[in-house]
Design a protein around this nucleic acid. Structure first.
Length: 582
DNA sequence: CAGGCAAGGT
């Protein structure tokens, strides 16, 4: 059918040219499938409804398209409706339609329905198995997933990728690596990972900060390049590698790869820029940006602008950032969007130019969203501008009553300004509303095994040794002149803050067992002297731990590298690579 | 009809 050939716009045009009496099932089906294929599930569902309203009866293909559209949207209702229609029309439950229905139920989180369909199938295909495997992994955990994986009569590359990604997601890169090895040795036909697998595996490594698996993949990629020397594959995988090395703190490796690339897309440039930015290499970001425009002849996009501005912010390059922002329209022909204003507000706010940041917000051509306001509020907390902070808070509570993060910020702000009554009020409010903070977690990799810690964690098998090390740390920190009180002055959001009760002592105690300190302690007792320690944290490091880490780096003569939610901190000899710019 | 997408901020 001709409508299936073109993009949705021309499909609609073609469809409208068909006289109404001649619009039969195949015409409608082509229109619906076209929208599902082009990732426009909502429109596909709308067209399906129009088809029914027009009195045309759907066929199997149309129903599969509807199921797949519902799956994309996790839309239970239309999914169920499609399933019922199937039964009502007496259509045959082929593997394809059954799989589509199972996929829909899996994505809607209704594993009971999905399983029932699966068990009723006479001949489940590899696709059926993979759908169920994905669902079990997502909703029932890794253990049940592995059992399912073992039951599979055979596996293809997609099934392997699903299983491996699941391992990396829960922080078991060792298991992921083992599975990768198993897959590559078991089946010669899978000697080379396809680019989908490569990119998703590398992205998992970036997120987990998992350099071990990332390097392994790079190695494999080098060996496999002979099989896959097409340009698209190289471009995408190289870019994913640059991202991985950048996010795993090996910006030099990223640069080497970047310089060697024969062709670079805008995404490659952006990945490299953000890699440098995360290390606080703001000047290099500005240099690379001008190379991108001149030598690379690349027109920067929205994300490029965000990267450059946030790099200026992270490195405290206020003047350069201001200039860059002013040049957006005249030189780069880019009209700043909300997120660019947000970066600029962040940049000015952190640098202490709060009035300028506020007037920038008021001059914006749109209503400020919570990111922009929240960013300014965070700066108020750093610079302890209580009045402005309170004003912003009022505004935010009205606009976005359900946003919780900022309550915590303001409450901490009151605490550090010794306005405990107000802080307590706010904390009570949070308790009443059941507002909870994301728990802080840190991980450290030792000999290829990733250890996770929450604040005050006592579940690690080496807990006793870890806590012994922690008290040694405290003693030696005190000897070095470290006091919690001083560090607390500009405290950000400490872990576990809400659970701490009101006692100051308890608060101080809680700071001492922040997850990153537990990870550090384990690192110190499990590795040889002088070995650098790399920690990944899901939230931002608090200022108290930041000061402690600087001292620990010199006391224990270690390089400590912490990747927090925002950037890298490289602690060495009493200093941090972020120059205390957060 | 299966896996995910290379980039930013909170």
């Amino acid at each position: 059918m001709y409508a299936a050939l073109g993009p949705p716009a021309s499909a609609i045009r073609a469809f409208q040219e068909i006289p109404v009496p001649s619009r039969f099932t195949p015409e409608w089906t082509a229109l619906i499938s076209c929208h599902t294929r082009h990732a426009l599930p909502s429109r596909a569902i709308l067209f399906f409804r129009s088809m029914l309203r027009a009195g045309t009866s759907p066929d199997e293909v149309a129903l599969i398209a509807l199921l797949s559209a519902s799956a994309r949207l996790s839309d239970n209702c239309s999914g169920d409706a499609a399933h019922l229609l199937f039964l009502k029309l007496g259509l045959p439950f082929t593997a394809a339609s059954c799989n589509a229905a199972m996929d829909m139920y899996v994505k809607c989180g209704r594993m009971d329905e999905a399983r029932r369909l699966f068990e009723e199938m006479k001949d489940p295909t590899i696709v059926s198995w993979t759908i169920i495997l994905t669902g079990v992994l997502q909703w029932e955990g890794l253990r049940s997933g592995s059992e399912m994986f073992d039951l599979m009569p055979y596996r293809n590359d997609i099934a392997w990728t699903v299983m491996i990604s699941a391992c990396i997601e829960v922080g078991l890169p060792r298991d992921a690596l083992a599975l990768l090895g198993e897959m590559l040795f078991d089946d010669v036909s899978m000697r080379s990972l396809n680019h989908v697998s490569m990119c998703s595996l590398l992205s998992a490594c970036s997120q987990a900060g998992d350099l071990t698996v990332g390097r392994w993949l790079h190695n494999h990629f080098i060996k496999a390049t002979t099989f896959h020397n097409n340009e698209n594959y190289l471009l995408k995988v190289n870019t994913a590698l640059i991202d991985m090395y950048g996010k795993c703190g090996r910006v030099d490796n990223a640069l080497t790869l970047f310089e060697r690339m024969p062709h670079r897309s805008i995404v490659s440039w952006n990945a490299m820029l953000s890699g440098l930015s995360m290390q606080g290499m703001g000047l290099q970001v500005l240099q690379l940006f001008s190379r991108m425009v001149t030598e690379g002849k690349q027109q920067p996009d929205d994300i490029t602008i965000v990267s450059v501005l946030s790099a200026c912010s992270r490195s405290g390059l206020v003047e350069q950032g201001r200039k860059f922002f002013q040049q957006l329209i005249p030189i780069h022909k880019i009209t700043p969007k909300m997120e660019h204003f947000a970066c600029m507000v962040d940049l000015l706010g952190r640098a202490g130019c709060l009035e300028e940041a506020e007037s920038l917000i008021r001059e914006m051509p749109f209503q400020p969203n919570e990111v922009v306001l929240g960013s300014l509020l965070a700066s108020c907390a750093i610079h302890r501008k209580l009045e402005l902070g309170r004003k912003l808070m009022k505004e935010m509570v009205q606009l976005y009553p359900n946003n919780t993060e900022y309550h915590v910020l303001l409450s901490n702000m009151f605490t550090v300004s010794r306005r405990h009554a107000e802080a307590d009020d706010l904390r009570q409010l949070m308790k009443n509303r059941g507002i909870q903070k994301t728990p802080g977690m840190s991980s450290i990799e030792i000999n290829g095994i990733v250890h996770w810690f929450t604040a005050g964690d006592k579940t690690h098998p080496q807990t006793r040794e870890i806590y012994t090390m922690l008290s040694e740390m405290v003693q030696r920190l005190n000897l070095a002149g470290y006091t919690i009180d001083a560090a607390c002055q500009n405290s950000r959001v400490p872990d576990n803050y809400l659970e701490n009760g009101d006692e100051r002592e308890e608060r101080e105690q809680a700071l001492l067992v922040h997850s990153e300190r537990l990870a550090l302690a384990l690192g110190l007792i499990s590795t040889k002297p002088g070995v650098p320690l790399r920690i990944v944290k899901n939230l931002r490091i608090c200022s108290d731990c930041h000061s402690a880490m600087k001292l620990c780096a010199s006391i224990f003569e270690r390089e400590i590298i912490i990747r927090d939610r925002n950037r890298f901190h490289r602690f060495k000899a009493g200093l941090c690579s972020c120059s205390d710019f957060w």
